[in-house]
Design a protein around this nucleic acid. Sequence first.
DNA 1: GCAATAACGGTCAAAAAGGATAGTATAGAT
DNA 2: ATCTATACTATCCTTTTTGACCGTTATTGC
Lengths: 118, 118
Amino acid sequence: MEEATPKMLTFKGKEYPCCASLTMGIIGGKWKTVILFHLMHGTLRYSELRKQMPTVTERTLSLQLKTLEEDGIINRKVYTSKPPLKVEYSLTDFGKTLIPIVQSIADWGDFVLENYSN
Amino acid sequence: MEEATPKMLTFKGKEYPCCASLTMGIIGGKWKTVILFHLMHGTLRYSELRKQMPTVTERTLSLQLKTLEEDGIINRKVYTSKPPLKVEYSLTDFGKTLIPIVQSIADWGDFVLENYSN
DNA sequence: GCAATAACGGTCAAAAAGGATAGTATAGAT
DNA sequence: ATCTATACTATCCTTTTTGACCGTTATTGC
């Protein structure tokens, strides 16, 4: 008897053991849902995002923004080619399909704080 | 002018910058939503979970189960005090409040596979 | 009597994620 | 002329997460 080869799901070259982990592969991590939570309400510049997320470092923020862009979740628009730049981030149509999830994730956090707080 | 001290949310001794990250602090990581996805449909023994998740190592599975238990999301019931043990895992009432989120996370994964595949 | 099963825990190592800090280019304000 | 703001990138480093692999206990089945 050999090991059963588990049938994996594939998306964008990555493999996932189940549909839930595919989603988490895209919105998982410490900061991605926070970014999406803020972009859900509309376009934001890089500096505006930073103000809303004061505890993330610039490096981490731009890394996360880049991978969200690569995954087709957000748009990046540059408004001047030379510094000082103006760059705006917004959800793509594909990214907007995540809004219900992000909203329910945020709601659950609020719910927990209200009902299970020390 | 001093740095504005960002107001943090606190839950179970951990700090989060926003309600969305609180939720992710509990269901984030590579395996937790997969565990919850399987437990959503009912109680499972440790060995049954393993069969449903063949690509996770035993050590990681028990670590994740332990932290989910510590966070009050799942119950652990032991049925014999001496080996071979029988241990069953199930969602707590608190854990059940996560079902809509886990379901929508799983649904989005399916949706992506159907509509945006390779 | 020996292997398999169950549900882990321990140790070590690798990989992934995240943070600290500094640097860059240039326009506009002071 | 200097300073500040913008949106990053580059190093370097630490922390967290995950994996590989082996050991443990006791009962059941062959």
